[in-house]
Amino acid sequence: MEHVKWRKPTRSGTHGNCVELAVEPGRTRIRDTKDREGGALEVPFGAWRAFVASLPER
């Protein structure tokens, strides 16, 4: 996979049970922090934004 800037959400903590995101023009990639070489889910940015907007506020 080409160079991608991955980041962990700020609420993920230090337990390693989280995902990492790479937001790029037109798409978002999501991968498991425990299996970084296992591939990534890629979704259109608009779909990711709609998913996040549908989550209840914490």
Score class of each variant (00 low, 15 high):
Asn17Thr: 09
Asn17Glu: 14
Asn17Met: 12
Asn17Arg: 12
Asn17Pro: 05
Asn17Val: 10
Cys18Met: 06
Val19Cys: 06
Val19Pro: 05
Val19Leu: 15
Val19Lys: 01
Glu20Lys: 01
Glu20Trp: 02
Leu21Tyr: 04
Ala22Asn: 02
Ala22Leu: 04
Ala22Met: 01
Ala22Phe: 02
Val23Lys: 08
Val23Phe: 03
Val23Ile: 13
Glu24His: 02
Glu24Ala: 10
Glu24Trp: 00
Pro25Ile: 06
Pro25Cys: 04
Pro25Ala: 05
Gly26Pro: 09
Gly26Cys: 08
Gly26His: 04
Arg27Thr: 11
Arg27Lys: 14
Arg27Trp: 04
Arg27Ile: 09
Thr28Leu: 10
Arg29Pro: 00
Arg29Ala: 13
Arg29Tyr: 13
Ile30Gly: 04
Ile30Trp: 03
Arg31Ser: 05
Arg31Ile: 06
Arg31Tyr: 01
Arg31Trp: 00
Arg31Pro: 01
Thr33Glu: 06
Thr33Ala: 09
Thr33Val: 11
Lys34Gly: 07
Lys34Asp: 03
Lys34Gln: 12
Lys34Trp: 08
Lys34Ser: 08
Asp35Phe: 12
Asp35Val: 05
Asp35Arg: 15
Asp35Ser: 13
Asp35Tyr: 13
Asp35Glu: 12
Arg36Trp: 03
Arg36Gln: 13
Arg36Ala: 12
Gly38Tyr: 02
Gly38Trp: 00
Gly38Pro: 05
Gly39Lys: 07
Gly39Cys: 06
Gly39Met: 07
Gly39Tyr: 08
Gly39Val: 08
Gly39Glu: 08
Ala40His: 12
Ala40Ser: 14
Ala40Leu: 01
Ala40Val: 01
Ala40Asn: 07
Ala40Lys: 00
Ala40Asp: 06
Leu41Phe: 08
Leu41Trp: 05
Leu41Met: 13
Leu41Val: 15
Leu41Lys: 02
Leu41Cys: 05
Glu42Ala: 14
Glu42Val: 15
Glu42Gln: 14
Val43Phe: 08
Val43His: 03
Val43Met: 05
Val43Cys: 01
Val43Lys: 00
Val43Ala: 07
Pro44Leu: 07
Pro44Cys: 04
Phe45Met: 11
Phe45Lys: 14
Phe45Pro: 00
Gly46Met: 06
Gly46Ser: 10
Gly46Glu: 13
Gly46Ile: 03
Gly46Lys: 08
Ala47Arg: 15
Ala47Pro: 05
Ala47Met: 08
Ala47Tyr: 00
Ala47Glu: 14
Trp48Phe: 15
Trp48Gly: 07
Trp48Met: 09
Trp48Ala: 09
Arg49Cys: 02
Arg49His: 11
Arg49Phe: 06
Arg49Pro: 00
Ala50Arg: 12
Ala50Trp: 04
Ala50Met: 07
Ala50His: 04
Ala50Phe: 03
Phe51Leu: 12
Phe51Cys: 03
Phe51His: 11
Phe51Gln: 03
Phe51Ala: 12
Phe51Asp: 07
Phe51Gly: 05
Val52His: 12
Ala53His: 09
Ala53Cys: 02
Ala53Glu: 10
Ala53Ser: 13
Ala53Gln: 12
Ser54Gly: 13
Ser54Phe: 00
Ser54Thr: 02
Ser54Tyr: 02
Leu55Met: 12
Leu55Pro: 02
Leu55Thr: 06
Pro56Ser: 14
Pro56Phe: 06
Pro56Met: 06
Pro56Cys: 07
Pro56Thr: 09
Pro56Val: 06
Glu57Arg: 12
Glu57Trp: 01
Arg58Gly: 14
Arg58Thr: 11
Arg58Leu: 13
